[in-house]
């Protein structure tokens, strides 16, 4: 283990202790680790954005035109200048134009992406479970497959209706219809099952990171002792 490895190992050890000191309460060391992380990652990301995006995509095309006017290279520069004006409290509203442009593009991507990449394939997938090739074996109905397909269809519908918004007047109060309430109860069971898996999944990932970090510290200390 060379000197650099020792220094890097010590930094890792110290940062781990600083973060875990949170267990004793919200304290100076924990806060210092947080601000250090924000500062380091911000500086790094700023350097990457400048060298990998701003210089090659914004500045280089203007230089390539030798200062000649080309709308396709000048427009983004102007939009960016408007954004930079946001740094001054009085001219924050100048940033609205480039932001509106960005928002419009992102909204369009969401519309296209969600409908083509999630909604349509997921809906088709439910119906495709009923395709003859899956629900029939040798011309006879495969009841197990049919039941599974019906179960998925009804389950998805129940989950969808859990979030139904429309209410109706029932006496003095407004409430959802009995059918929607019934579906909602079933839907909550399915949501609970899914959330159970998500909960355990994240816990396992976090636990893996914890054990790996503890293991790294153990190895570091052992290597310091054994030289």
């Amino acid at each position: 283990m060379n000197a650099l490895d020792v220094i890097i190992g010590l930094i890792g050890f110290a940062l781990t202790l600083m973060v875990f000191s949170y267990l004793l309460g919200y304290n100076f060391f924990f806060r210092a680790a947080l601000y250090l992380l924000v500062g380091i990652s911000s500086g790094y990301i700023a350097a990457v954005l400048i060298t990998k995006v701003i210089l090659p995509l914004l500045i280089a095309p203007i230089q390539a035109h030798n200062g000649q006017f080309s709308p396709l290279t000048v427009v983004p520069l102007l939009l960016c200048l408007l954004l930079v004006l946001m740094l001054f409290p009085r001219t924050v509203s100048a940033g609205k134009l480039p932001l509106a442009f960005l928002v419009g593009v992102m909204a369009a991507l969401t519309i296209a992406g969600v409908s083509r990449g999630t909604l349509a394939p997921q809906l088709l997938s439910i119906v495709n479970r009923f395709s003859p090739s899956l629900v029939q074996t040798d011309g006879e109905p495969a009841w197990g497959q049919i039941l599974e397909a019906v179960f998925i269809l009804l389950g998805v519908v129940a989950v969808l209706f859990t979030f139904h918004h429309r209410t109706h007047l029932k006496g003095d109060t407004e409430a959802r219809s009995g059918l929607v309430e019934g579906l909602s109860s079933v839907g909550q069971v399915f949501i609970g099952i899914t959330f159970g898996m998500l909960f355990v999944g994240f816990y396992t990932t976090a636990l893996t990171a914890l054990i790996a970090q503890l293991g790294t510290i153990k190895d570091f200390i052992l290597s310091l002792i054994t030289g």
């Binding site: 899914t194 898996m197 998500l198 999944g201 994240f202 396992t204 990932t205 893996t208």
Partner: peptide, 8 residues
């Protein structure tokens, strides 16, 4: 994927 994304 990380275990946390298994359901997704």
């Amino acid at each position: 994927v990380a275990k946390q994304d298994a359901a997704m």
